[in-house]
Lab assay of single mutants.
Amino acid sequence: TSSHKLRLYERDDYRGLMSELTDDCACVPELFRLPEIYSLHVLEGCWVLYEMPNYRGRQYLLRPGDYRRYHDWGGADAKVGSLRRVTDL
């Protein structure tokens, strides 16, 4: 099985509160109590970021690497509604 891990930060450049995720999350704002995510670091696996909860809205593919600001993943703003692991490519 492949492993997945990413870290979410409330501010750009990996500042502020950090939360780690290793499984799908249908509602990021509810789980982490963060209305917006300004940076993230994908440590393992690929993920799909959705701008709205319950895997809706615009989708962004996140490969392992650094995303210091939301425009690094192509986002128009810092809204992160849900995240899902990519298990098949």
Results as ranks from 00 to 15, higher is better:
A26I: 06
R68F: 15
R11S: 09
T22I: 09
R58I: 12
P53C: 07
M18V: 14
L49C: 04
R68N: 12
Q59L: 02
V28M: 07
S3Y: 11
V48L: 12
L6Y: 00
T22P: 01
D77I: 07
Y70V: 13
G81P: 02
D23V: 09
L17P: 12
T22W: 05
S39K: 05
L49Q: 00
R33M: 14
Y70M: 10
L83A: 02
R11H: 13
E36Q: 15
Y67H: 07
L21P: 02
G45P: 00
V48N: 06
E51A: 09
R85L: 03
P53Y: 01
L17E: 14
L61A: 14
S3F: 12
L89P: 15
A76W: 06
G45H: 04
D13L: 08
E44D: 06
V80E: 02
R58K: 08
M18Q: 05
C46S: 15
E44M: 05
L17N: 15
R85M: 13
D13F: 13
L31Y: 15
Y55G: 01
P29G: 12
S3P: 08
L34E: 13
T22R: 08
G75S: 09
S39A: 05
Q59M: 08
A78E: 05
P35N: 10
Y67G: 02
H41E: 11
L43E: 08
H4I: 05
D72L: 07
L21H: 11
H71N: 07
S2A: 08
V86A: 09
L43K: 04
V80N: 09
P64V: 04
M52D: 09
E44H: 05
L31A: 11
G45T: 01
N54C: 08
E36A: 11
R7F: 09
G45E: 02
P35A: 15
R68I: 04
F32I: 14
L17F: 12
F32A: 14
L6V: 12
L8G: 03
L8T: 01
G81M: 07
S39F: 01
L49R: 02
Y9I: 03
S39T: 03
G81Q: 04
G16V: 05
D77T: 13
H4V: 01
Y67L: 05
E44W: 09
A26H: 09
Y70W: 10
L43A: 05
P29R: 10
Y9T: 00
D12W: 11
I37T: 12
D23E: 11
H71A: 14
M52Y: 12
S19Q: 11
R69T: 14
T1E: 09
T22G: 13
C27P: 00
Y60H: 07
S82M: 06
D88E: 06
G65W: 00
L31D: 10
D13W: 05
V48D: 10
E51K: 01
L43S: 02
C25R: 01
R85V: 07
L89Q: 15
L6I: 15
L83S: 04
I37Y: 11
R68H: 05
E36W: 08
H71P: 11
C27D: 15
V86S: 11
L21V: 12
R7K: 05
Y14I: 04
C27L: 06
D12R: 11
G65T: 03
A76K: 09
A76H: 13
S19M: 12
H41Y: 06
D66N: 10
Q59V: 02
H41W: 07
G16K: 04
L31S: 11
L8A: 10
S3L: 07
L6H: 06
R68S: 07
S19G: 14
V80Y: 02
W73Y: 12
E51W: 02
L62H: 01
Y67P: 02
H71I: 14
D88W: 04
P29F: 15
V42Y: 05
C25Q: 00
D77C: 15
R11C: 09
L40V: 15
D66S: 14
E20R: 01
L61K: 14
D88C: 04
L6W: 03
L31Q: 15
E30I: 04
A76L: 14
R68G: 03
N54S: 05
E51M: 02
M52R: 12
K5R: 10
R63Q: 12
L17Y: 13
Y50L: 03
L49M: 08
Y70L: 06
W73R: 06
P53F: 04
T87W: 11
R85F: 00
L89S: 15
Y67K: 07
W47H: 02
E10W: 07
Y55M: 00
D23T: 13
L17S: 14
V28P: 06
R15G: 13
L21K: 06
P64K: 09
C46A: 13
L83K: 00
G65S: 05
R11Y: 10
Y50T: 00
D13N: 14
Y70T: 06
Y50D: 01
